[in-house]
Computed example of a mutant assay.
Amino acid sequence: MERKVFHLDDIVEMKKPHPCGANRWKIIRMGMDIRIKCQGCEHSVLMPRRKFERKLKRVLESAEKEKK
């Protein structure tokens, strides 16, 4: 299975959209848990890393590319 690569401040798409209708999330904290913030309504969600990796669909915008 291919491991998905993501970094702090990346904009990601999850498998299911947020109830507000948006499906763009910004990673604002990384560690054992990952905190993501909805780009539609600014609501933030904290979830274990394993659950996040399972629900992650793809990285839309990488913060690493913007730094270079």
Results as ranks from 00 to 15, higher is better:
Met1Ile: 12
Met1Tyr: 11
Glu2Ser: 06
Glu2Tyr: 08
Glu2Phe: 09
Arg3Tyr: 04
Arg3Gly: 09
Lys4Trp: 04
Val5Lys: 11
Val5Ala: 07
Val5Thr: 09
Phe6Ser: 09
Phe6Arg: 11
His7Tyr: 14
Leu8Glu: 13
Leu8Ala: 10
Asp10Pro: 03
Asp10His: 01
Ile11Gly: 00
Val12Phe: 01
Glu13Val: 02
Met14Glu: 06
Met14Leu: 13
Lys16Ser: 09
Lys16Pro: 02
Pro17Gly: 07
Pro17Asp: 04
Pro17Arg: 07
His18Thr: 02
His18Gly: 01
Cys20Thr: 05
Cys20Tyr: 05
Cys20Gly: 04
Gly21Met: 07
Gly21Tyr: 05
Gly21Arg: 08
Ala22Trp: 05
Asn23Asp: 12
Asn23Tyr: 08
Arg24Asp: 02
Arg24Ser: 12
Arg24Val: 00
Trp25Arg: 02
Trp25Glu: 00
Trp25Val: 00
Lys26Gly: 05
Ile27Cys: 14
Ile27His: 13
Ile27Val: 15
Ile28Asn: 03
Arg29Met: 12
Arg29Ala: 15
Met30Gln: 08
Gly31Cys: 12
Gly31Arg: 11
Met32Gln: 12
Ile34Phe: 09
Ile34Pro: 04
Ile34Arg: 10
Arg35Thr: 15
Arg35Ala: 10
Ile36Arg: 00
Ile36Lys: 01
Lys37Gly: 11
Lys37Val: 15
Lys37Ile: 15
Lys37Tyr: 06
Cys38Glu: 03
Cys38Ala: 10
Cys38Trp: 05
Cys38Val: 08
Gln39Thr: 02
Gly40Arg: 11
Gly40Cys: 10
Cys41Lys: 05
Cys41Ser: 03
Glu42Asp: 14
Glu42Ile: 01
Glu42Tyr: 03
Glu42Gly: 09
Ser44Tyr: 15
Ser44Asp: 15
Val45Ala: 07
Val45Gln: 07
Met47Cys: 14
Met47Glu: 05
Met47Gln: 14
Pro48Ile: 01
Arg50Glu: 15
Arg50Gln: 12
Lys51Asp: 12
Phe52Thr: 05
Arg54Glu: 11
Lys55Cys: 09
Lys55Gln: 12
Lys55Arg: 06
Lys55Leu: 14
Leu56Tyr: 01
Leu56Gln: 02
Leu56Cys: 01
Lys57Ser: 08
Arg58Glu: 04
Val59Leu: 04
Leu60Phe: 04
Glu61Cys: 01
Ala63Phe: 10
Glu64Phe: 14
Glu64Lys: 14
Lys65His: 06
Lys65Ala: 12
Glu66Asn: 07
Lys67Val: 12
Lys67Glu: 14
Lys67Pro: 08
Lys68Asp: 02
Lys68His: 10
